[in-house]
Computed example of a mutant assay.
Amino acid sequence: MIEALARRMAGVVLVTLGATVPVVAYTRLDAWDAELAGRADPSPTGLVDMLLGGIGIVLIIGAGLWWHRRRTTMWPIWARWAAIPGLFLAVFTCLSIAEKRNAPVALAIGVGLIVACWALSEAVRLVMTRPVTDGLIASRLEIPFRVRVLKARLCVRHDRLVLDSLTSQRKRSRDAIAVPWQALRSIELVDVEQETVCRVLVFSGLPEANAREFDVTPGPALHIVGTARELLVPVTNEVGRAVLRAVEARSADMEVDEGELAEDEWRRKSGVRTTNALTRAQRRAGVHYRTDYRPYRLIPVAGFLLMPLFALFGMTLSLATGSKKQQEQFYVVDGVVSPWNVAILAVASIGFLYVLYRLVGKSFLSFMEGQNYIEAYPEPPARAKTGTVPGSGKRNRKR
């Protein structure tokens, strides 16, 4: 879609700008510090070190943006992470100038840089999610909406409706609950006449899900009925109509799955072991079964498997830049590379990349499939929810 591509390109430009501004500011501040100290030149910084560090950051941020290419709510977070390295150097230099050179204006510059980077990350949010146009609805980009009174956030994704931030705005993925289009029985905008409590189930890692409750004040609310849960989400009339329009468009061609799940099928799809297979510590802590848990243990494994490729890249870069220091580190003797070293690193890189895909890539993708599943089906088996809308006196309508 043209609009989705334009939004992504604008987001990438803003993320790049947010990462570049503090780096440029740091070089100017370093030159200013040198001038105040009476030095002829700013502090020397190795070109190869900057390239290696910069390319590493670009690869990490680029991979994050690609992984969350549809999750527009994650783009502002990646924008802030992209700005942190340069912002840290710039603010540290500002503090140093203010303390050693008695130049309080440097503090104002540091605060201005922090505000500017935050503003750019918020601009990324606006560019990716607002306004809610027909083109945005027709795309596969996530569309977030604010919820009335609550801290929670309602997001219309390409394949599901998600309510997150029930317990934490800092970790929005904790206790996220979802209703996929194939499990959506009905959704309507109702008028809640008296304050009521909505009770939802979240995954616990055990056969019985944990219960979470939140208050629903009188006023407009979205009544959502799925095969595994029923939600009553307080919204404004404007937000409710926009959500209905987006859900209707994105779920139009999806056939509702009316079938019941067996417990063994639920365990297979969620990747959860039976209760008697859990250790006592796992039952007590439950850390591996939170909906916001990620397999961070895969990070050092991935780092180890990327070492041959990193060495080959560093060897090539040291030759291109002519850095003697880096050539010594990557075993380039007098600007000459041993063909055997290149061949060994090339073969090791290919082999390790294959192992990386098998051990890390497939494992992570399989894990995330299970996480997405348990957000929608927190306990076996899925049960159909029907009845009267709490506090409204109205009955459900099939969509």
Rank of each mutant, 00 (worst) to 15 (best):
W266L: 05
L206W: 01
Q182H: 13
V200E: 02
A249T: 13
T196E: 10
L244T: 06
D215I: 13
T236E: 08
V256N: 05
D164Y: 06
A246E: 03
S204E: 04
F203C: 07
S186P: 05
F214M: 12
G219C: 05
D264Y: 01
L201C: 09
Q182L: 03
R250E: 03
W266G: 06
C155Y: 02
A242K: 10
S186M: 11
F203G: 01
W181V: 01
A246V: 07
S173H: 09
V216P: 05
E230M: 14
E265C: 09
T167G: 03
E193L: 07
V235L: 03
D215K: 14
V233Y: 03
S251Y: 03
A242F: 00
P180R: 01
E193T: 06
H223V: 04
L150H: 04
P234I: 05
T217Y: 08
A252Q: 14
V179R: 01
V156P: 00
C155S: 15
C155N: 12
R245D: 09
S204M: 03
G259H: 00
A211L: 11
D215N: 15
R241W: 04
N237D: 13
I224S: 05
T236Y: 01
L150P: 00
L161W: 02
F203T: 09
E230Y: 06
V225F: 14
W266C: 02
L222Q: 03
L189N: 11
K171W: 09
E208W: 00
L222N: 02
E255T: 15
R241K: 15
V256L: 15
L206H: 10
L206Y: 01
R174A: 14
R174Y: 04
L201Q: 15
E263P: 00
R174D: 10
V243D: 02
P218M: 12
R199K: 12
E230V: 08
D253H: 05
L154K: 02
T217S: 12
V225H: 11
L201P: 04
E265I: 11
G219V: 00
T217H: 09
E238R: 11
T196W: 01
V216T: 11
V216N: 07
E248W: 05
E265Q: 13
V200A: 08
D257E: 07
D175M: 08
V197G: 06
R245C: 07
L231F: 12
D215Y: 09
E238G: 08
A262D: 13
D253F: 05
R185K: 13
